[in-house]
Structure formats: structure tokens, C-alpha cells
Design a protein around this nucleic acid. Structure first.
Lengths: 335, 335
DNA sequence: AGAGGCTGTCGAAGCGCTTCGACGGTGTAT
DNA sequence: ATACACCGTCGAAGCGCTTCGACAGCCTCT
């Protein structure tokens, strides 16, 4: 069973090869009757254009790269959500997604760009000082970053507005009357690395606390149960007035609740707890956590949408920040 | 800056285009001197072969598809581990990975195969009655499945030997002197769907228990804390002699420990607990859990290795089962 | 009635690469 | 010395598609 080519379709429909191409691409006007005849042949023969030939002739592969670094302290489920929304959105724009990880290093990007395997790329989990950024500038490959590097000029970046997410938490707790509140963040290594979103969340949190005249404490948080327990105990001992806790670390979220239980503090009666995390994590906790949502699906969608616009030659904003969304559940209350 | 083509390299090196091609592919003998001269030109010009042209001429895209369904109850981190090991291994074989999700449905597979976008595919999370399986047979596309469908004849399947994993847990607990042991499995929906690995684990567990003359209980387990708590409480009430617990559900692992704490049972003094999960989850728990490892990286590696063999036309075994590995930590002890 | 402008279709020229057959040149067996 | 084999290299023919320019036919405007 030889594979069906455009020539077969053309013969079957009794038209020229170029006519079939134009029907399929819509790049020139074709009469309705011809068009229908061609489409009927396409279906009858089960024709699918050969991707390689198309890419060669058109200089467009209709594939975009999704570059995931996969570092310690990243929460995988969120990454997966990004990834799947990128794939789904890309398909809506008739593109496929090539998955790349960082272990090939920057050379991977270079290779993929130079070989015209992809038309553009979406880079996830971009750090403040990301080695991929200068390379991106050099390659001139259309791209969209998820996250913000230190120097974002000339790049297209998308992310949740983490500063506002941190602030939203402080706002919510302050409005409930809490006067001393803490943020438990990512593991230390994430801050050491200079990961923008973690820092911006803290800044937003602290800043908003100051505005409200509320005492804020911000602390990194490791991910083992015992470490979380120690951190929480320490926090409560040092700050007896502490009554509000924000967890921005998905692996630790469950442990924090467990630690409070062990320490004999009730949620929300003694301590209000909120999380910055996807909804399903917040809902699965006990009690369900008031949370600020990380809109992973939306970020992925925006990233692809922007990339597609760039591929069309449309100008796009350098920076796109997505609004955090507060969902009030049962883990916070006034005092 | 026009992109560098093989013609540029040939001119630069003073040889024919075909010679450059043969140097790069090694498909014909080329003298050492010529070869070196060509390679020097390749580096000097920064040549990368155009993927589309290569695919068109050679009928090989050097891309494989990775198909993730993404259903409820799947544990994402494990999927990610599979995925990254597939990508890494594919790169070792000079292939890239196209990421596909199920929302395009079987047509996605058909499209990708017919357009010669990929040379073969790796399908993850295959169910007992998987709609993709008949399609796969029809397409005749080289493929490897991770997981086992009901009828695996003529297909290449890889997976952890879950029956032996379940048995290993029962063996371990029995050898420690426990006479009544329970398996907490995946959420009910997973069994309803007919997911092979979940069922096989249970069967192996029950079977091994029988061999040892130990009472076994196998129960599905939802993933919220409160549900887990209720399940565990119920289990302990109904089976007062229960002293060993196996958790085969990553989202629930942490909750089970929390539930036991709440119920006043110490681990491992009162109840021995083990898990079937990746090492990092087991190590992060408190106390660190004796576990049977899911060798995600190895499964991904094997899948790609087998696929590459098939692409070379080498015959491969229909079924590859990976040995479970028991790691004894602090959550189990004799009674 | 003729010029000019649209529309819809065709033919042909590549896109950059692989691969096949051909062919000098050198080494080995007769 | 002649025949033969083999090694290393070359030229050319596609792979299946897009796209450009050409052009026939028709309509509209003067």
C-alpha cells in the first residue's frame, strides 16, 4: 500500500497538482466546484500531506518546540499542565509539539533551530539568569518564554503575575484581621538559583503586608515532612501571634497541614492557611484550602497564541502577565 | 545570513555533495583525509542538515511520537519521569520526540503516521481495552506500548512486572511475621476503566499472600485526605489484627501516614507501611517508607531501545517485564 | 468593439537531501 | 603484462510539496 501523494489526488480529481495544493492551503481562490471535487478525492484516497516535503517546500515545519528544563524543586504536575495545554493549543493552530529537555543543553536549541525542525519555541521555567536567553537572541528564532529573565528586552514573556498572587494572599489574610502572617516558599535551592517567580511572590507578599501594616515573615521551605514540621514549629514558637500561613510549594502543602495537626493547631480555628497552587491540590487537602490559582492551562494557551502571532509576523506585547484568581475555601477565617 | 546547506559544505571542502552526505551518514567508505576535510568544513560553516529535506529524501524523519493519554487518577510525576527518559534515550539514538496527547483521539495517530511526521511511536499508559490498539494494528506503524492490553499479540509491550511488585510487598510483610495485610490501591475509577497494572498488582499481592498463608485485603483508595482517613479507619476497625499496609497510590501515600497519625497508630511500631512508588516519594515521607520502586526511567529507556530496534528491522520480544526492586527503609518492622 | 482587469487553473522550477549507478585508479592474481 | 576486483568519489535522479508566473476566459468600462 503505497502512500497517497498529492499527485494521486490531482489525478483522481482531474486537476493540476498545484490546484490541489491551493485548495488545501487556501492561498489562492479556487472555484467551489473544483474545490469540492478535490476535497472529495482527498477523503476518498485518505490523503495526508507528507510533512517533510511540505516543510522543505514551504520552509515551515508546523512544529514548535517545547523546552522544559526539569530542575530540582519544580513541581511536575504543574509542568504537565503547562505542557498539555501547549500541545492542545498548538493543535488548534495546526501545529505539533516537539518535546525537548535541557540535558542536551543549549546545543539542542541550536540544532533544532538550524535544522528547521521547528518554526519556533516555547521555553518553560525561565530563570532570572537563564543561559538559554542569550542564545535565543543569537538564534533569532521566534520564541515565547514562560517566566521572566532579568533582561527581557526584545523577548516575549508570559507568566502568572506572581507579585500580585503573593499580594492577594496578604490582602486576603489582612482583610480577615490577621496581624502576623508568614509565607512558606520553595526549597532554598530554588531561590539560590534565582528563580523569578519565587522571588516575586515573596516581594508581592511582603509589600502588601507592609501596606496593610501587617507583620510578614517569608521563609523557604524544604519538602520532606520532618523538615516542614520543624520549619512550622519553629515559626510558631518564634512568632506566637502568627495566625496566617501561605504555602507556595506544592510538595509541602500536604505536609504543612499534617504538621499543624501534629502540633495541635486547628485549621482554620487557630491558624488560617492558604496556598498558591492548582485547584485540584487545594481541593484535595483537608480542609480544602483557600488558594490563589496558578492558571497553568491559560499560561500555556497564551504562550502558544503569542508564538503563532509572531510566526504570522504580527507584533505582540513583550510582557503578558496573567491575573491571579483567589478561591476562598474552608481553610481561612477571620479572627 | 542564509542557512548553510550541504552544497555550501561540499564547495567549501572541494568535494561532491554526495561525498559530504556519505561522510555524515557513514553509509559508504570515505577516505580518512577526505572525511576530515569535510568534517572541518561542517564545523567551520556550522552546518546542520535540514530536517525536512532529509526526511523527504530518506523517508525517515528521525522523530518518534510519545503519546500520553492523561486520564484521571494518573500520577503526573511518574508520567513526567517516563517522558523525560524517553526524550533522553531518543536523543541518544539521534531521534527527537513529538509529544501527543489523547484529546486529538486516534485520528491524531493516523495523521501523524500518514504524514510521515514520525518514524514510530511510544504509547504510554495503555489500558486493557485500549482504543488505540486496533488502530495501531491497522496502521502498521512501528510502536512500543508501555503497559499491556488484553490482546498483546503482535505488539511490543514493556512494563514493570506489577504482579511481582505486589507479590514482593506481600512477601516482605509476611517474612516480617505479619499475618493480616492490606493493599490500598488506585481510585476506583482506575479499576473501572480496566487498567492492567492496578489489577495485576492486586492479583500478585493476593496470590503471594495466599502462598504464605497470610490474610490479604485489597481495597481501592480515593485521593483526598478525608477519604483516605475514612478508608484506613474502616480497615483498622474491621480487621483488628491488621498490621501491614501497602499503598499503591502516590497521591494517597502522604495522606495514609497522616491518617495513621491521627488515628493514633505508630509507624512502624503498630503498623508496617510500604509503598509502590518512586524512590523520592518514599524518601520524602516520614518515616521514610520501605518501597517497591517503579523504575520509570528504565521503562522509558527500554521502550525507546525496543522501538529503535524495530526501526532497524531487528526482531524484538513481544513482552518485556522489568523486575521490581525492594528498598527497605524505616516504615516496616517485624512483630 | 477594444482595452483592461479579474478569476481560476496550469506547468514548471525548485526546496536540500539521499542514494544509485558509473567510473577512474590502485592493488592482486594469473 | 592482462584481467579482475575493489575502493573512493562523482553526477544525476528523484523524494512530495509549494509557489511563481503565465494564460485562457470572462466581465466591465469606455
Amino acid at each position: 500500500m503505497r502512500t497517497v501523494t498529492i499527485t494521486d489526488v490531482a489525478k483522481h480529481a482531474g486537476v493540476a497538482v498545484s490546484t490541489v495544493s491551493y485548495v488545501l492551503s487556501g492561498k489562492r481562490a479556487i472555484s467551489a466546484t473544483t474545490s469540492q471535487r478535490v476535497m472529495r478525492s482527498v477523503r476518498a484516497l485518505g490523503y495526508h500531506p507528507n510533512a517533510g516535503a511540505r516543510a522543505l517546500a514551504s520552509k515551515r515545519s508546523n512544529v514548535i518546540a517545547l523546552v522544559l528544563p526539569l530542575r530540582a524543586g519544580m513541581h511536575l504536575p504543574v509542568l504537565m499542565q503547562f505542557a498539555t495545554s501547549v500541545v492542545t493549543t498548538a493543535r488548534q493552530f495546526d501545529h505539533d509539539v516537539l518535546l525537548m529537555t535541557a540535558d542536551e543543553g543549549p546545543d539542542g536549541l541550536r540544532r533544532v533551530a538550524a535544522s528547521a525542525l521547528v518554526d519556533g519555541m516555547v521555553l518553560m521555567d525561565v530563570e532570572i539568569h537563564d543561559p538559554r536567553v542569550p542564545l535565543l537572541r543569537e538564534l533569532g528564532e521566534p520564541s515565547v518564554l514562560i517566566g521572566f529573565p532579568a533582561d527581557a528586552s526584545g523577548l516575549t514573556c508570559v507568566d502568572l503575575d506572581f507579585a500580585r498572587a503573593g499580594a492577594a494572599c496578604a490582602d486576603h489574610l489582612a482583610s480577615l484581621g490577621h496581624r502576623e502572617i508568614a509565607l512558606l516558599g520553595a526549597p532554598n535551592v530554588v531561590y539560590k538559583r534565582g528563580t523569578g517567580y519565587a522571588e516575586r511572590t515573596m516581594e508581592g507578599f511582603v509589600e502588601a503586608g507592609r501596606t496593610h501594616g501587617v507583620t510578614t515573615i517569608a521563609s523557604p521551605c524544604e519538602e520532606g515532612f520532618d523538615e516542614v514540621c520543624a520549619t512550622v514549629r519553629d515559626l510558631l514558637e518564634r512568632h506566637p501571634g502568627l495566625s496566617g500561613l501561605v504555602v507556595h510549594n506544592e510538595a509541602a502543602t500536604g505536609h504543612v497541614l499534617g504538621a499543624l495537626r501534629v502540633l495541635g493547631r486547628r485549621v482554620p480555628e487557630d491558624v488560617s492557611v492558604m496556598a498558591i497552587c492548582p485547584d485540584d491540590v487545594a481541593e484535595r487537602a483537608s480542609p480544602p484550602l483557600t488558594s490563589v490559582l496558578i492558571p497553568a492551562a491559560d499560561v500555556g494557551y497564551q504562550a502558544v497564541r503569542l508564538l503563532m502571532a509572531k510566526l504570522e509576523g504580527v507584533a505582540v506585547p513583550d510582557s503578558t502577565l496573567l491575573e491571579p484568581r483567589l478561591a476562598i475555601r474552608q481553610s481561612t477565617r477571620g479572627r
